[in-house]
Design a protein around this nucleic acid. Sequence first.
DNA 1: CCCTACGTTCAAAATGTTTTGAATGAACTG
DNA 2: CAGTTCATTCAAAACATTTTGAACGTAGGG
Lengths: 178, 178
Amino acid sequence: MHETLTAVNNSTVSGLGRLAGFFGFSDVMGRLYGTLLLSPEPLSLDELCDTLRISKGSVSMNMRDLERWGMAKEVWVRGERRKFYKAESDMWQVIRNVLGSREQREVQVALHVLGESIEKLQAAECQLSPEEQRLARFYLDRIADLQAFFQFAQLALQAVLGSETAIDFEAVTRIEIE
Amino acid sequence: MHETLTAVNNSTVSGLGRLAGFFGFSDVMGRLYGTLLLSPEPLSLDELCDTLRISKGSVSMNMRDLERWGMAKEVWVRGERRKFYKAESDMWQVIRNVLGSREQREVQVALHVLGESIEKLQAAECQLSPEEQRLARFYLDRIADLQAFFQFAQLALQAVLGSETAIDFEAVTRIEIE
DNA sequence: CCCTACGTTCAAAATGTTTTGAATGAACTG
DNA sequence: CAGTTCATTCAAAACATTTTGAACGTAGGG
């Protein structure tokens, strides 16, 4: 294959590995995803092993994760007994999967814990010594800031997730280029 | 100290540890930050060791990182020879530090690499076999999607970073609560 | 100057994560 | 049903990260 194609493939795959790492997934997941994304045909487990120089076991496990996150799908190739995979190529869908199920839960838990802390502090106020009351009020201030941060994050997430297919990537490209 | 205060302190500190981990920092950094954030007085290295049950060396190194990221500052306490630290309590500032210097650079690098790939593919087109040309066009499609994603990320970052002190956390709190 | 109180460094140890490959099992085929 | 071809599992090994503490450096006080 022409060297340019190989080079582009490599840098894209390793870039996606990096991106995956950034989002708290394993590098390998990202590289598998990238390899599938740049393959016009679905790929089998063995082809993925060969391409990425990774053991079969690892590919098997990581592919399961990719499927769990809706980033890849099994594909049935007629006349073949093996499993074939293709990437979910709708980025928007992938992002919604990840943000919607993982990040949103994290934010909600955080908000819940912070809310509880505030309640506890307010409830305990009358049992505290004057010195402790000062500290409690200090805590309340700082925790209110954290709360505001997470509420902001929640709003941002909802903005991205809420719009059905809204944020139109193609449109973004056009805006930037012009 | 009253048990409620201790409990709130613990959950906040460990929550910030979690958050730090999420952003690719070490847990310990987050916990140090949390401990400082919930202390009305600046704390010395040794106090931080004691509170978090962590070695002096570790605190020293992690505090340097916290300073590098603008999340904590040294404070001079008169009559004291030791270093004291306090948290940068303006969350907005902290977020801008992190997003501005780290995330933004990542996004820019990614955009640069993707742009290069597109150029390379276009330049090589006339040297490719018909079969390779089909593949090159396929790559261009997929890479354009990735580009759009990163351009979206860049816009989002700029929206957050661009506004001077704009996104007003207190206002967010009010909106959410009402 | 020397002594003390501190902060920093860094190599080794502890801990955590990822990868591997042999064992297992499931599904098809003749 | 026996043989083959695959995917999966999981314990052990390879690898990476974090933590530790002893050694070192530095500044102030006497």
